[in-house]
């Protein structure tokens, strides 16, 4: 008989810029090794996953990361007293700091996580990417952080337009002039705060790799993908697995040098000279993770097993030319459900 685990997952916002929660759950549900009860953690009452009852068994609202770790811990204590959670898989960059900070406390409560260390989380941060690239011998575009909109006029000392204007957690825009850069500075700063990262624009084709590191320098899984269909927010709406040994080589090198622990996504740009530049390291599973599952590497399942302390045999291959095509679907929801999650914070 298979063992059943209670697994809590965030990122239920299956919207046009989707969180990874739903595909992570699909991977877990596909596991033949264990059964699961899925608890959704939601921040907002309109996250679609809350209402997907065949995917999520029960949802609880949790406080925003800006509320601090104490209020998050208090809420988790309550949910744990009801649900007896075995594992939490956080899927947002912005919440990772809190969960990494609480990892030991949660472990003592019997809740397992499999996250990067605080040092790994901090050093791969967009603002630290140049130092990261230098330390680990990975090519990265030149970048610097700015805190003041007036700094934009001095950028021409180090950059030529176009440049990429990035938020510290999310959002990136290509600016072709100082005026455009100013507009994007304001737009991003209002949403994600400061600093703003200014990055050299590398012309080329974007490739992504998702994978899983065991924290000892080993690659447990790695799948490379090219976006085929990109939304106006730059998100993949379709993609295909590819075979590129250079790209996978960079990934193995990244994992062995950093001893990365947990899921990740590398955003790479292949220049016209066929050189790869690392644009960003997302310290969590990406929203397109179900493509990796479909191509033969069930990364969410492997992450659960690592969190449980099991020995996991590394995946060695995946199917090349496997595609994902995302679609939207209107659910019909009774207002009673919306009312319940909005007032009681549970559904």
């Amino acid at each position: 008989m298979k063992k059943k685990y209670c697994i809590a997952v965030t990122g239920l916002n299956a919207i046009d810029s989707p969180g990874p929660g739903i595909p992570v759950i699909r991977g877990i549900r596909d596991s033949l090794l264990f059964d699961s009860r899925i608890i959704g953690f939601a921040y907002e009452s309109l996250e679609p996953g809350i209402y997907m009852h065949d995917v999520v068994d029960k949802t609880y609202q949790i406080p925003y990361p800006s509320s601090g770790t104490d209020s998050l811990l208090e809420r988790l204590n309550y949910i744990h007293s009801v649900e007896k959670i075995d594992i939490i898989i956080p899927n947002f960059d912005a919440e990772l700091y809190s969960f990494i900070k609480l990892e030991k406390t949660l472990n003592s409560m019997g809740i397992k996580l499999f996250l990067p260390t605080m040092e790994q989380f901090e050093e791969r941060h967009k603002v630290n990417l140049p130092a990261f690239g230098k330390k680990y011998g990975i090519k990265v575009p030149f970048s610097r952080e700015i805190f003041n909109i007036s700094d934009i006029f001095g950028l021409t000392r180090d950059f030529t337009y176009p440049i990429v204007v990035k938020g510290k957690y999310y959002d990136a825009y290509i600016a072709y002039s100082a005026e455009q850069a100013q507009a994007y500075f304001n737009k991003i700063a209002a949403k994600w705060g400061l600093p703003i990262v200014i990055q050299e624009f590398i012309k080329g084709t974007e490739y992504n790799v998702t994978g899983l590191g065991d924290g000892k320098g080993n690659t447990i899984a790695a799948v490379a993908m090219r976006k085929q269909y990109i939304t106006d927010k730059g998100k993949a709406w379709g993609g295909i697995t590819i075979e590129d040994n250079d790209l996978l080589g960079i990934t193995h090198n990244f994992l062995s040098k950093t001893k990365w622990r947990g899921g990740f996504e590398l955003e790479m740009m292949k220049s016209s000279k066929n050189e790869y530049y690392l644009l960003e390291i997302n310290p969590r599973i990406p929203a397109w993770i179900y493509l990796a599952v479909g191509a033969g590497q069930n990364i969410p399942e492997a992450l659960v097993r690592l969190a449980l302390g099991e020995e996991v045999e590394p995946y060695k291959a995946y199917t090349i030319g496997k595609m994902f095509i995302r679609y939207s679907w209107d659910m019909i929801v009774d207002i009673d459900e919306f009312q319940k999650i909005s007032t009681v914070g549970e559904l």
Binding site: T205, Y207, M225, R226, Q228, G239, I240, T241, I242, E243, D244, I320, G321
Partner: peptide, 19 residues
């Protein structure tokens, strides 16, 4: 190498993902 082509003219380059 690795580029595949089907009888009806569909070409897939597995290294770049282009078709």
């Amino acid at each position: 190498k690795n580029v595949s082509i089907s009888e009806n003219g569909f070409i897939f380059n597995p290294t770049t993902g282009e078709s």
